[in-house]
Amino acid sequence: MEKVEKKLREEAKKLLAEKKVDVVVGYEAGTLPLTATPVFITAPEEADRLVWNAFCHHNLAKYVHDLISANRDSQKRLKPEDRKRKVVGVVTKGCTSRSLVIHLQERQYERLDLSILGVPCTGYVDRRALAEKLGGEEILEGSLDGANLKIRTASGEKTIAVKDVLAANCVTCRFNNPVISDVMLGEPAPAMNPAAEYAEIDEFEKLSPEERWAYFQKEMAKCIRCAACRQACPSCYCRTCFAEQSMPQWVGISEDPSDTQVFQFMRMYHMVGRCVDCGSCVSVCPMGVDLRKFLKKLDKDCFVLFNQRAGEKIDFPAPLQDQRMDDKEDFIFNPGGGH
């Protein structure tokens, strides 16, 4: 990790000094112990602020989209020949790279707008899992010591293995390395346990519709519709979200549970072939809604039906951009069989 971090700083410094990028989006140490926060580096001397460790959980593709579209909007009134490209360097782990691929597939910007600093990833620490392990005690001091976290709380010193507090999406991750990069920093990381990727979904599918509906209702009842999931999601970049449209008003604003259910259902359904399972929505949800239980199902369906995973291949249309004559159609209703 330290080696990767050192290389990352050097590379960022080089790119900024040679003016190959205008900004490097990365992570810096957070203000609280054992956290990291996104940072925008624009001067070579600032590059030493960059870190790469097990606390870097944000999907930075979100910021890349924001930066590039803001730059484009600010130049709308300029003649095309006067417009300047803003090249964004981005620290990219597996899930971030797949989000970038999705943006490229959806023609949000060009590959030339990006300089991808690939980093191998061995998963990030789930803030909630860690808090649970500590029984809700505040972390006064903490450091990363190899594969362990050394933590001091009011009740004393504790050692917790990183692998025990990894986020659920990291435990079964198959994309530990970026799928596209301009420069790869450090040795590629091994895959985690992708064989168990859909175990939770398979379990849930075995329940009766009534049990599944009860679970959906229970989870959605927690939702306060703050839209943090949408704000954090790199695939949610619409200028006007359907949730805020008023002509037509897709989502009611009443306190009827169905309005929340419909909002969540449709936001999630928009993620067919677009959810990279980066865990951003889950990590920002203030109410702890189990979004992954549903989003991962879309990922599974996409793989089962179309043999594709979101953002896996750059020179391939996204699953719902594409279609085949011989797509599976077992769901098509056929009274009397055949026609």
Binding site: Y215, D301, I332, F333
Partner: peptide, 25 residues
């Protein structure tokens, strides 16, 4: 067809009865 394959599957997954939604040609 691609949209509805995933939509129906997702509706069923959250517990909507299979017979509520029908897709055909």
């Amino acid at each position: 067809r691609r949209k509805f394959a995933t939509l129906k599957s997702f509706l069923n997954y959250i517990g909507i009865e299979d017979g509520r939604t029908t897709f055909t040609w």
